[in-house]
Design a protein around this nucleic acid. Structure first.
Lengths: 234, 234
DNA sequence: TCGGGGACTTGATCGAGATCAATTTTTTCT
DNA sequence: AGAAAAAATTGATCTCGATCAAGTCCCCGA
């Protein structure tokens, strides 16, 4: 494993404040793996053996029930996923698959639980992480229950714009079918939602989107810091 | 405060393992309050001053966005709510209101954070609680995205039946409008969903529901331990 | 016990979203 | 570059859920 990968890891909020010994315990039995796109990393129902960290690439968390499937979140570097399952030692509730070629670091679940038990600083960091994740899901549930499809799309676009520092043009980093599922709609309806937003000066060309009039979208969804994590205050 | 209320509190998983001194710190500045039905306890957007514990009654967690409102969870005794906001010291993402007359214990947020910082056992207990809550919300998100309205109702009925230890008849402990919102539908559609389930031998009379043929409902939703918390294995 | 008002139900209509089918565009592979 | 495969779009239709409007039931208070 490259030492700058370890540095990346060390800088995550989750690993701040733990001792060097604890960090070594976590990483010594860890291993780094490269995966091509479309590889399933974990399956819902399995027992967690590793805490995964996306160092590079993109990972999609999804779930299935009968014939239906839905995307729950997209994990971007650098962050961990399935921490809750690892720490509570319960089966996964989500499956994970790479969307593009990715580098994934895998920390043995047993080590994570060991350091968790021994180092109060790690336990406290995990509280911070879980608290944040919990609030993320609550926001997403509100997004789903309180907004229409077109509104969810508009909110997502404004969020991406925020991340891109207010850029006029943004690019969807994955297939539109994935975005559709993430937003809780079919690909067909995503197309129509884009068509609806044309009236708000949103123009598309493949994965690239130009937001000509952010204020119009803003008025449509009225983003709220109680739903949209990216929106703080004004 | 009655001492048996303290006992109730002490028995919660969240407070296991912390020192008597820590427990005293938490409870000495706490106070107990009785509220009639339909009282708003907290509002989304406010800063958390207390960790709330429902000792008796029923509390509804809900959220608003523009004109729309949705019920997110129902909190039953004995359990805490809004722990995540208290521990991360961030604004509430949900509002809370009593559904019936309730007794609520309020622990000062500052004390909670103090004991959290000082007692590793408390920090670890909070990890367990947050991990569990996180998984609850993920399940609910999957429930919403992967099931139809009638299926969500059927799953809810089967869950209540499980809680009631397989009883043929169950009683909705709150108004049907609340259940409708919790399940993500309108009161009108809940009525129709019940009408649909009549074909599966579900009969209603006010808030009392008789589930004549659980196997039929089972076949309809195919409950999954990946969505329905009450369903473990077979 | 008798209103009165809210909760619930039912019917009719409307709109959003899903599905099916066909076509166009884009990507990928040789 | 060209062919094949996959993704995206578009149109038509259908289903589910929302809304509007009565009407009924039930609970609560005077």
């Amino acid at each position: 494993m490259r030492s700058d990968d370890l540095d990346l890891l060390r800088e995550l909020p989750l690993f701040q404040g733990i001792s060097d010994a604890g960090f070594r315990e976590l990483t010594q039995a860890a291993f780094l793996q490269r995966f091509p796109a479309q590889v399933t990393l974990i399956n819902e129902g399995e027992h967690p053996d590793f805490l995964h960290v996306v160092l590079e690439g993109l990972v999609e968390m999804f779930a299935r029930d009968r014939q239906r499937e839905t995307v729950l979140t997209i994990v971007q570097p650098v962050s961990t996923f399935i921490l809750a399952a690892v720490i509570t030692d319960e089966i996964y509730l989500k499956s994970a698959r790479t969307l593009v070629a990715s580098r994934i670091l895998m920390l043995p679940a047993a080590s994570v639980r060991k350091v968790f038990a021994e180092e109060p600083a790690f336990a406290r960091a995990i509280v911070g992480e879980l608290g944040f994740r919990y609030r993320e899901v609550v926001r997403e549930l509100k997004n789903q229950k309180l907004r229409s499809g077109a509104e969810r799309l508009a909110a997502w676009l404004l969020g991406q714009r925020e991340i891109a520092d207010g850029a006029r043009e943004i690019t969807i980093p994955f297939e539109k079918r994935v975005l559709a599922s993430l937003l809780g709609m079919t690909p067909e309806n995503l197309s129509r939602a884009f068509a609806t937003l044309a009236a708000y000066d949103v123009t598309t060309s493949g994965r690239r989107i130009v937001i000509g009039d952010p204020a119009a979208l803003w008025k449509l969804v009225q983003p709220s810091q109680f739903i949209d994590e990216w929106k703080n205050g004004e």
